[in-house]
């Protein structure tokens, strides 16, 4: 930590170091060091000599692991699935949150406090439990949902190969919509009431006001939501790994995170797992950077 102190000269430098050292120490231990170590690991491979007997040798293989990751059809397939997941999830969740927040802010809305609490409820349910509940709600025999649809003459298997992706999307929508409704509703409450009053005097109806006045004013909050949503989607792991126990449609390499987990714990190829983790982290960093740039440019114009 001596190095850090020396870079922080000037007023308060030493005190600042005192306050910042604990955080940056855990930051280094929990993020920097693991990532750096994985980066190193990802350039090596364990190779068994001869017929596979004897000690495995570790040797430098350059980008070989990365090539293997990208040549793996299950990895690129998972990446494609994740992209499709984002394409369905982000518009439905963000769109739903915007609509719900605008409804909540409409002059006709009642019992706002209660609605806010209820809509936030799913966020208090841990991801594992949310996935479990929905896994049961998708399972014929237990599920009121499947039963209701059947009595209406609709036969749906939520867990078959075609529907399992939208089914997983639905779990995430359920978990995250309410959280974002609260953020957007708070932003809407901050819209100056004089502006809305003026619009009303000018004859703009409720819907018109919502679309052409309120919506543009919550765009900054919306861009933050987009950023965190995109980071969130790359984390996709818990829901599919729970759903995987209820259906064979979700394979052990269904999305990149599962692929990396599978590489480490089922295929016991730690070097490949390290390479996959680095790929996922880089992808996340790149995407968040792109979204941040884009949204700051949008907010400026």
């Amino acid at each position: 930590m001596a190095r850090k102190t020396s870079t922080m000269s000037g007023t308060g430098g030493r005190t600042a170091a005192l306050f910042l050292t604990p955080f940056f120490a855990v930051f280094a231990l929990a993020i920097i060091a693991p990532v750096v170590y994985s980066l190193v690991l990802s350039f090596y491979a364990q190779q068994k000599s001869g017929l596979g007997f004897g000690e495995a040798k570790t040797s430098f293989v350059g980008l070989e692991n990365y090539l293997q990751v990208f040549q793996s059809e299950t990895f690129t397939g998972g990446l494609g699935r994740l992209a499709l997941y984002c394409l369905i999830y982000i518009p439905s969740m963000v769109g739903g949150a915007v609509v719900f927040a605008l409804l909540l802010d409409a002059t006709a809305a009642r019992a706002r406090k209660l609605f806010q609490l209820l809509v936030f409820l799913p966020h208090a349910v841990p991801g594992v439990i949310a996935a479990l509940i929905w896994a049961y709600l998708y399972t014929p025999g237990v599920s009121p949902l499947v039963q209701a649809l059947q009595s209406g003459g609709i036969q749906l298997n939520f867990l078959d190969a075609h529907l399992v992706l939208p089914s997983v999307v639905n779990i995430a929508v359920w978990e995250w919509t309410g959280y974002n409704v609260i953020i957007l509703f708070t932003a809407l409450q901050a819209v100056p009431r004089e502006i809305l009053e003026a619009a009303r005097v000018d004859g703009a109806g409720e819907i018109r006001t919502a679309l052409s006045i309120k919506f543009p004013l919550i765009l900054p909050a919306l861009s933050v939501i987009m950023l965190f949503t995109i980071i969130g989607t790359l984390q996709l792991f818990t829901e599919p790994s729970i759903i995987a126990k209820a259906t064979a449609s979700v394979t052990s390499t269904w999305v990149p995170n599962l692929w990396a987990y599978d590489a480490a714990f089922n295929r016991h190829n730690l070097n490949q797992a390290a390479a996959a983790s680095i790929v996922i982290a880089l992808l996340a960093a790149g995407l968040s950077l792109a979204v941040t740039r884009l949204s700051s440019r949008m907010n400026k114009s």
């Binding site: 980071i231 790359l234 984390q235 792991f237 990396a260 982290a281 960093a285």
Partner: peptide
Amino acid sequence: LIPNTATVLPMYL
């Protein structure tokens, strides 16, 4: 900005 799950395996390693 780095998702949690991206650092879990590195932490394990």
